[in-house]
Each structure stands twice: as C-alpha cells, then as structure tokens.
Write a protein that binds this DNA or RNA. Structure first.
Lengths: 248, 248
DNA sequence: ACGCGAGATTGATCTGGGTCAAGGAGCGCC
DNA sequence: GGCGCTCCTTGACCCAGATCAATCTCGCGT
C-alpha cells in the first residue's frame, strides 16, 4: 500500500505520509527533522481497539495503512460511528488529555504517532503545522456536517449509495483509478460497521445492497469486492446533485 | 444582552465578545488593536439570509446577539440544519472563498465581522489567533459528532430532549442561571427549524413536545417560553449518561 | 375589539425501516 | 474434507415516525 502512487498526493515519497500530507505539507527541513525525532510507529491488528473513549491519550498521529473507525456508544449499547479514518487521516486532539471516542482498527493497521506534548510544543513554534492542522480540522468538520445531512434526511438506499460514493472516491484517490468511469474497490467495513456509520441496522444495509445490485447500480464479487460501473449513477442514487465535498 | 454578565466568559467587558472569547482569549494589546482595525458590525433581521450556500464570502466573524442557523438543502427541498450559532459562536472558514451552507438569522442579529483577507494575514503572524481558532474548530467538530449520534441513533423524544438540553445549557451559560436546578429560557427556533435540526417533521416535534409537557419534564408558557424543572431528568430523557460535551 | 395569518396542535392513516427468526456462504482449522 | 464460526442474506411481521388533513391559538395591525 505504501508503494501506491498518485500524482496529487505525495504518499509514496519517504516512509510516512504524515510528513507530506497530514501535518507538514509546507514545512522546511529543520521542521521535518524535529518531527522525525518525536515520531514512532505502532501496529494494530484487525478488530483491536486503539483507544477507548475516556482513556488518557498521550499521542496524536495519522494512519499509514489500514482503516480505523471513530465510534460513540450510548450506555444501552446503541453505537454511532462518527468518523472513518483512511490512510493519511489524522487522529487525536491536541490540547485534550482524554479521548472522546473509541478508535478501532477494522483492518490490520499501521499508525505514525507523535508524542503529544512535544507535538504541541512544536505547534506553538511552527505556525505552519498549526495552520495545516486547522485546515484538516475544517475539512473534517465539513465532512461531519455533510454526514449530518446523510443521517438526518436521506433514505436507507441513499445512505448506502452515499457511503459507497465516499469510500469509492477516497479509495480511487489513493489508487490509480480504473479506466472509463468504472470504479473497483474492496469494502473495508462489515455490514454491521456500515450500519453503525449510517444509523441503520445491518439487515437494512444488507437488503439495500442487494437492491442496488439487483438494479445494476453496483456489482458484487463475494461480499466485499465492489464494482461501480457508473459513478454518476451512484451519485444520483445518493441524492447528491453536485459531486460535492464528501471526504470521509 | 450585551450587558449580561457571567464570570467564566468575559462577554461583558468591552463591546465585542470576539475580542475575549472567540479569537483573542490570550492576545496582547497590539494584537487586539490590529483586530480592532479590521472589525465592523452588521445587523440582520429575523428571517434574513446572511449568506447563501455557494456565494462568495469575504468575511469571517462571530455572533454578538441573536441566533443564526447553518443549513444544507438537497435539490428536492429536504433540509438539514448542521449548526446552530448562538452569541459568541464563530462563522466562516478562513482559506475558503465560497460558503458551504446557508447562514440564516432566525432572530434579529448583530454580527461582528472581520474582512477575510486581513484576518487571514493576521492569522499567519499571530499564532495565538490560529491556535484559538483551531481550538474552536475542534469544539465544533466534537459538537457535530455528538450530533451525529443524536441524528443516527436517538428516538424522536430523545432528540427533542437533547435539543432542549443544548439550548438550555448554552442559554444558561450566557445568563445568570435561575435558582435550584431550574432552568428557564425562550426557544429561539420554530417547530419547523427544530425539525430541520433533528431530522424529524414538525408534526413529530410538536407531538413530542406535548408529550414531554404532559409528563412534566418541561413546562410551557405560550409556544416558546420553556421551564425545565429538573435538568437531570431532561438529560435522562435525552439518553445522555454523562452530562458530556454537547456544545451546540 | 376584531379579524387575519403564521405557526402550532391533534387526529387518522400509511410505510420505511426495525425486529425477530431462520437459513446460507465462505473460510480457516483440525 | 468436513466442522464450526463469523458474517451475510432473506423472510415475516411490527411500530415509530411520516404523511395528509383539519382545526386551534395567539400575536398583531387596523
């Protein structure tokens, strides 16, 4: 996965995406070196919880490979996913000691971490890092608000289509895109995880996926391997007029 | 309203809350003076649209008095409110030309604005402003994610209770709180606007409010004036275990 | 005081998606 | 290669909330 190449994201140069996209897009060499010093890697297995909501969290970082989710849980067990972390996404909140959500690896995962205190110190002295972080946070806020529309006003079928569109778009931007408007990817989530993201039950997710398949909007090989023959058709199903800014 | 006093927020010192809370909590006098120079006020009437989604937006700012909403609309007319702006809340996204949402004043409203370009320039030279803005954006992100749980997983009754809790909490932090766990405020939203916030219909909102009234969770004088006799009871109805971080 | 109109309430009915329940399909493991 | 496990699909039924349709209320202007 690290070897993948896309001209717009410099994910493949060097060994860590954070160096290029997540926090340091415009940093000079000194600043990069400082970051190197407080950087370390952690690996997690599929299903492993990276942080529990309420736990002390002494690092921030970004996903190198694999997929993680942010979820909230009510005491009666209802859960809602509030974020989907794909490679290059940032985790953690500078200036807060406790994690506000459960962070769970849904696939095997490698994270590039920075100890929080030195990272915060660096932010104080390196406006560009703070700036970049602000930009990223604003993007996440937009994505969260886009998702509020999905959760509040879309039908089950539209919700599924919206999720597939998000994953497809993000995935395609990481891979060399397949030819001719066609889009191929593997679903990184179980039906249950999709349901938690969409505010549905897993049965409804399954039914709507079957329905979209029946109608030729998507093709499925096995349970996870998806082909989108016509992405515009999918967007239409999602109720998206503009192919707007849904960014996971 | 400008004259209100609360020890934790220095809203009442000076003539503009942004000076103290929104962007400049820890700025020195020089920095404050710079902000003063690019500051101006705008007034809006109830119902007036401040910015249309997709319009050029050449300012950022914060609400001084009144209430505004951020909404998204699908082409078939379904709308979802994605943010509620109460006094001292920040509007606008540095580094983006176009507004992503409709911003509508739901009451008469005064905004303290800064022309965007000079504000952005100031951010580059004044780390504390960028820092403060990052903090605020992270708070908004948390609020948006909290709201995703409300939209995705809560029942209509819980949604109403959650909204009342948010408004009550915010309102109480601006006013001197009424005695003995009791909480009194005026609903700043119509039933329809509440429905748009909660992903419900206005009929359901009305029914649930009646039901909460019948059960003694809230008291209503007229259509808008609300008394919460027991805030903990309301939180229980909202399904909130911890009285956690819902911040509008 | 009166009448008008926007907003709110309440009722009757319908339906999308939840719930409960019964298999099926793939896959790793002995 | 069959056993068991986890994940997924499909069916039957139900219910919370949407929809459609009357009123009702109250603030406001004359």
């Amino acid at each position: 996965m690290l070897g993948n190449s896309h001209p717009d994201l410099s994910l493949q140069c060097g060994d860590c995406p954070i160096r290029h996209r997540a926090v340091c897009a415009r940093c000079d060499e000194d600043e990069l070196d400082q970051l190197e010093e407080i950087k370390y890697y952690r690996s997690f297995e599929a299903g492993q919880t990276i942080v529990w909501s309420g736990d002390r969290m002494d690092f921030v970082g970004s996903v190198v490979t694999g997929i993680a989710t942010l979820t909230q849980t009510m005491e009666d067990g209802r859960t809602q996913m509030v974020g989907l972390l794909l490679p290059s996404d940032f985790v953690g909140r500078p200036g807060r000691a406790m994690a506000a959500y459960d962070v769970v690896a849904t696939t095997d995962l490698v994270m590039c971490c920075f100890r929080k205190k030195p990272f915060e110190d660096m932010m104080l002295h390196t406006p560009r890092i703070a700036q970049r972080l602000l930009e990223m946070t604003l993007d996440e806020l937009d994505a969260a608000r886009e998702w509020m529309l999905v959760l509040g006003r879309k039908t089950a079928r539209e919700k599924i289509a919206s999720l597939l569109a998000i994953i497809g778009r993000r995935d395609a931007s990481l891979k060399v895109s397949a030819g001719a408007g066609q889009m191929v990817f593997d679903l990184p989530l179980t039906r249950e995880a999709m349901a938690d993201y969409l505010g549905l039950t897993l049965e409804t997710v399954s039914r709507q996926i079957s329905s979209l398949k029946r109608d030729g909007v998507i093709e499925l090989a096995g349970k996870r391997h998806v082909t989108i023959p016509d992405f515009d058709r999918l967007l239409e199903e999602a109720g998206d007029d503009n192919d707007g800014g849904l960014v996971a």
